[in-house]
Simulated scan of single mutants.
Amino acid sequence: MDTQELGFCGPGLMGGPMIRHLLRAGHAVRVWNRTPEKAEALVPDGARVAATPRELALNADVVLLCVADAAAVEAVVFGANGLLDEHADQASRPRMRLIVDHSSIPPDVTRALAARAAALGVGWIDAPVSGGVGGAQAGTLAIMAGGVDAHVESVAPILAAYASRVTHMGAVGAGQTTKLCNQAIVTATVAAIAEAVSLARRSGIDAAKLPEALAGGWADSTLLRTFVPRMTQDGLDPIGALKTFQKDVDTVAAAAQQTGTPMPVSGTVQQLLRLGAAMGLAQADLSGFIDVLQTARSMPQ
Results as ranks from 00 to 15, higher is better:
Ser298Cys: 08
Glu212His: 10
Phe8Lys: 08
Lys38Arg: 12
Val186Ile: 15
Ser104Tyr: 01
Val63Thr: 06
Leu293Tyr: 12
Leu214Val: 13
Ala88Leu: 06
Pro157Asp: 09
Arg297Pro: 02
Arg54Lys: 01
Glu37Gln: 11
Ala192Ser: 11
Val269Glu: 03
Gly288His: 03
Phe227Tyr: 15
Arg202Glu: 15
Lys38Pro: 13
Trp32Val: 08
Asp61Tyr: 05
Met263Glu: 09
Ile290Met: 10
Val190Arg: 00
Ile185Pro: 04
Arg97Gln: 06
Val172Thr: 00
Thr140Asp: 02
Ala174Asn: 01
Leu236Ser: 04
Trp124Gln: 00
Gly135Lys: 03
Leu113Pro: 00
Gln258Lys: 12
Ala75Lys: 09
Ala277Glu: 15
Gly217Ser: 12
Ser287Arg: 05
Gly10Asn: 01
Gly267Val: 11
Leu199Cys: 13
Leu273Tyr: 11
His151Glu: 14
Met1Glu: 07
Tyr162Ala: 07
Ser298Gly: 12
Val152Phe: 09
Ala171Cys: 05
Gly82Arg: 04
Ala278Asp: 15
Pro44His: 02
Ser287Lys: 06
Gly240Met: 05
Val62Gln: 01
Gln258Ser: 14
Thr35Arg: 00
Ala208Glu: 13
Cys9Thr: 12
Arg93Cys: 10
Gln257Val: 12
Gln283His: 14
Asp69Asn: 13
Asp85Gly: 03
Arg202Thr: 14
Lys247Asn: 08
Gln4Ile: 12
Ile193Glu: 04
Trp218Pro: 14
Met279His: 12
Ser164Tyr: 02
Val29Glu: 07
Gly288Tyr: 03
Leu214Pro: 13
Leu98Ala: 02
Val122Phe: 00
Arg20Leu: 10
Ala192Thr: 14
Pro262Leu: 07
Ala47Val: 01
Ala25Ser: 11
Ala188Gln: 08
Gly139Gln: 04
Met96His: 01
Ser221Gly: 14
Gly147Val: 10
Leu22Asn: 06
Ala163Met: 03
Leu58Met: 04
Ala115Tyr: 00
Val249Met: 05
Ser298Pro: 03
Arg54Glu: 00
Gln270Cys: 13
Thr295Tyr: 03
Leu275Thr: 15
Leu84Met: 06
Val265Ala: 08
Thr52Glu: 04
Ser164Met: 11
Arg34Asn: 08
Trp124Asp: 00
Leu120Gln: 08
Leu242Asp: 03
Ile143Lys: 01
Ala254Ser: 14
Ser203Thr: 13
Val186Ala: 10
Gln90Glu: 15
Glu212Leu: 11
Leu6Glu: 11
Ala253Gln: 11
Cys9Arg: 01
Leu98Cys: 03
Ile19Asp: 09
Ala171Trp: 00
His102Thr: 07
